[in-house]
Amino acid sequence: MTADAFIFWFLSLVAVTSGLSVVMMANPIYSALSLAMTMVSLAALFATLGAYFIAGVQVIVYAGAVMVLFVIVLMLFDLREETKAFTRGQVSGALKIAMIGFLAGLIVMVMAQGVKFLAAPDVVDAAKLPEDSSKALGLVLFNRHIFGFEALGVLLLVVAVGTVALARSKGGTHAKH
């Protein structure tokens, strides 16, 4: 087994295992830790795919900022052990699992069909992608996608104001006037 293949299989094993434990763990703090582990392994996968800047942002934003938000809110709640961690009802649960199996088969089938229409994607290697992809990313981001970038700035401002307003209001979304 080559080194690249070993790295891929190891990282995907870690990602799938920790992703499953996000769903399966009864205690939410373990779910949060598993999610952070999934984020880190996905960041390593991004790095193996040549997206170094995105890998760094993934670690900083997701595994750093977003997970800290989640853990702080969890600590704020001081939850007792979750008694009904999963959905109730045998029939509806079986129905949901069947739906999920159907969706998984559908996704894999669509991807397997879609790959055929690409120009032999396994043959085209990373030669066309520039070596320092961060510089190319910056050039494209600040030239072709500059309007989207600025719109994101406005959106983040609106979200910051809205979050503070929402968290301060008495009763939140269920406020009685």
Partner: peptide, 8 residues
């Protein structure tokens, strides 16, 4: 679909 905790 399966979890009941909104955070999860």
């Amino acid at each position: 679909l399966m979890r009941r905790n909104v955070l999860v």
